[in-house]
Design a protein around this nucleic acid. Structure first.
Length: 270
DNA sequence: ACTGGCACCTGGGCGC
DNA sequence: TGCGCCCAGGTGCCAG
C-alpha cells in the first residue's frame, strides 16, 4: 500500500497524539510478520515514553529511551488511532495502548510489514544503506546523474532502489517518469543530466502534492485518523494501462520492469 | 558490484 | 456459485 506520502501522512496524523505519550501496554496479536515480532518487545517497552517520532524512507521510527520501535507498513499496512478497548479485528497485528487512553493500532492484511525494537536504528542493516530523502536537498539532478553512471538497469527500477533514493514506489515513480517524459525502460546510465534535473523537480513536486492531499488511497489506505488520501484524483497514468493518454490520446502501454507493472505513454515518454 | 528473479501473505476481480 | 488464476501501494535475499 503505502509509499512515502502515505507514510508521511500517517506520521503527521498520529504525531500530536503519540509524541510524549507513555506506553501502558503493547498487545501483539500477530507476531508472524515480515520479521517476527520478538516476544519481549511489549515487556521491554511498557512504561516507556515515545520521545519523538520520525519517518525515514518508508519506515516510522518511534524513539524511546531504551530503543526505537521501527515500523514498516509493507504493502497493506496502516496505523490507526482508536479509543481504549476497541475490539481487535481480523487483521489487527499490534495494539499500543497509551496512557492517554488512546490506542495506536497496526493493521496489516498481507503482513509484509513489521514492528521491531532496535537500539541504533540508523546503524541497523535495514536503514543504514538507504539513499537520500527525496524531499531533502540531498536529492538533486546532479546526484542522480552521478550515481547512475555505469548503471544499466531501467530508470524505473533505479528510482525504486532504496539505496538510490528513499521512499519511491510504483505509483510515484510511474507518475514522475511520465511527468518528465522519460521512458521507464531506458537504462539509467543513458539519461542526460538535463533530464535528471527535470526528473528531480517532478519527483519533488509530485511527492509534495501527494503529501498535501494525504497520499493516495487506491483500496484501503487511511491515515491515523481514518482519513483516506485523495492524490488518486491527480494520478495521470498509474493503473491506466491501455487507456488513452490524457496529454496526447495515445494508448498507454504496460510492461513489466522487475516484476512490477509499469505504465507509460509511448509518445510522451521517449 | 550489478542484475533479475523469488520469496513472504491475503484478498479482490476476472474468466470459465 | 465456485474454482483457479492473476493481480496488488514493498523489499531482503539469492544465484549468476
Amino acid at each position: 500500500m503505502p509509499e512515502l506520502p502515505e507514510i508521511e501522512s500517517t506520521l503527521r496524523s498520529i504525531y500530536p497524539y503519540v509524541k510524549g505519550q507513555r506506553i501502558r501496554e503493547i498487545i501483539v496479536y500477530k507476531p508472524k510478520l515480515r520479521w517476527t515480532v520478538s516476544k519481549n518487545m511489549s515487556n521491554s517497552l511498557s512504561g516507556e515514553v515515545f520521545i519523538s517520532i520520525e519517518r525515514r524512507a518508508k519506515y516510522l521510527l518511534f524513539h524511546t529511551k531504551i530503543g526505537t520501535l521501527v515500523n514498516h507498513l509493507g504493502m497493506s499496512g496502516s496505523l490507526q488511532l482508536l479509543s481504549k478497548g476497541s475490539k481487535a479485528a481480523k487483521h489487527t497485528c499490534v495494539d499500543i495502548n497509551l496512557e492517554s487512553g488512546l490506542l495506536l493500532r497496526y493493521t496489516d492484511v498481507r503482513r509484509f510489514g513489521s514492528m521491531l525494537l532496535i537500539q541504533n536504528p540508523f546503524e541497523h542493516k535495514l536503514l543504514k544503506n538507504i539513499g537520500p530523502e527525496p524531499l531533502s536537498d540531498f536529492l538533486s539532478g546532479e546526484y542522480l546523474f552521478k550515481v547512475s553512471r555505469k548503471r544499466s538497469i531501467a530508470i524505473k527500477a533505479f528510482l525504486m532502489d532504496s539505496k538510490v533514493v528513499a521512499g519511491l514506489g510504483n505509483i510515484y515513480t510511474t507518475e514522475a517518469l511520465f511527468a518528465a517524459g522519460i521512458d521507464p525502460r531506458n537504462p539509467a546510465q543513458d539519461i542526460p543530466l538535463s533530464l535528471y534535473l527535470k526528473l528531480v523537480i517532478k519527483i519533488k513536486g509530485i511527492l509534495s502534492e501527494a503529501i498535501l492531499l494525504g497520499g493516495t488511497t487506491l483500496r484501503n489506505f487511511s491515515d491515523g485518523n481514518g482519513k483516506p488520501g485523495s492524490f488518486q484524483k491527480r494520478i495521470l497514468i498509474y493503473g491506466r494501462s491501455y487507456k488513452p493518454c490524457f496529454l496526447c490520446k495515445s494508448v498507454l502501454y504496460e510492461v513489466k520492469i522487475n516484476q512490477r507493472s509499469s505504465v507509460f505513454c509511448p509518445k510522451c515518454q521517449t
